[in-house]
């Protein structure tokens, strides 16, 4: 296993009396494409901001490429691309000015890529000369993505990158991510609510719940082994299964449990007991079960 690119250990963060992150540990290896999932208000944006050193943590440490996030060298900074959920900055500038401004800040800047993306994503001469505040939400988001990709980052962090995009815009973005980013072994971390997009590009998923990473794993493996087991509580009470994530004993005498490690024992049980049902789960099912 390669040394992780990002490492968070026992990170805590609170706002007022609300504990958002509580002793969170998380590591991301080079080349991983990780989807970060969690309910509204679970703290995904806070986690991403702490991870980038944009927000101070109460406790814990964060390192990126082995450096303390509060003390990053210019070389490491230049390797990171970030698309915030919402950017209200630079509203008075035009897209052209914004890109020129950022170009001056980075040692490396891929002009050909910027030009290509601007053309493909509908930024003609006219639009490039318009104040950013006059652009639509989707256009601002596309511009934000172009800005984040322009210096060919080796670590790309995106907070709800497609929230303001329509299905066509989302597909364009996914193709760009696949073609220009993933094929170059870039490490990508992105939060999203759109599970279908995540399924297409993420190889790993991490679920944020109660201020911690509640579950992380390879998406294919989770989908292949996650099962919902439903059966009479009387029968299920004494049984323990490997990889149990959740168990709910209903008042109707039926127990439902979720396991991430359905194996032969479970198959044998279902074959033996006709009252026990085993169902495969979709990513959406898993999202609901893990995060509620």
């Amino acid at each position: 296993m390669n040394a992780p690119i990002i490492e968070l250990s026992s990170v805590s963060k609170h706002f007022g009396n609300q504990q958002v992150l509580s002793g969170l540990d998380w590591a991301i290896a080079p080349g991983q494409v990780v989807g970060l999932l969690g309910r509204n208000g679970a703290g995904k944006s806070t986690l991403i901001e702490c991870l980038l050193g944009l927000r101070e943590t109460d406790h814990g440490s964060v390192t990126i490429y082995g450096e303390d996030v509060n003390n990053l060298s210019d070389a490491v900074r230049a390797r990171i691309g970030y698309v915030p959920q919402k950017s209200d900055l630079f509203q008075w500038m035009t897209p052209r000015q914004l890109l020129d401004y950022f170009k001056a800040l980075y040692p490396r800047w891929n002009d050909a890529k910027v030009k290509g993306l601007l053309a493909r994503w509908g930024f003609d001469q006219d639009k490039c000369g318009k104040a950013i505040s006059k652009l639509s939400g989707g256009e601002m988001q596309r511009l934000s993505i172009i800005r984040a990709l322009a210096h060919d980052p080796s670590l790309l962090i995106l907070d709800e990158p497609v929230a303001a995009l329509d299905p066509v815009g989302r597909r364009d973005f996914l193709r760009e991510l696949i073609d220009g980013v993933i094929e170059r072994d870039t490490t990508v971390v992105f939060s999203t609510h759109i599970l279908s997009d995540l399924e297409r590009v993420a190889l790993d998923v991490a679920f944020l719940k109660d201020g911690k990473i509640a579950l992380q794993g390879a998406l294919d493996e989770l989908m292949e082994h996650a099962r919902r087991v439903v059966g009479p509580s009387a029968l299920m009470a004494g049984m323990r299964f490997g990889g149990e994530l959740r168990r709910h004993d209903g008042r109707d005498g039926i127990t439902q449990l979720i396991t991430r490690g359905a194996g032969a024992d479970l198959q044998a049980l279902a074959a033996r007991e006709s009252s026990v049902r085993i169902e495969p789960m979709t990513l959406e099912d898993l999202f609901v079960e893990v995060t509620q």
Partner: peptide, 17 residues
């Protein structure tokens, strides 16, 4: 792999697998 990944908007690793 690349053509399929592009056409279906999939991670190329998934197609390779």
């Amino acid at each position: 792999v690349r053509d399929i990944a592009q056409a279906l908007a999939l991670n190329p690793m998934t197609v390779s697998k």
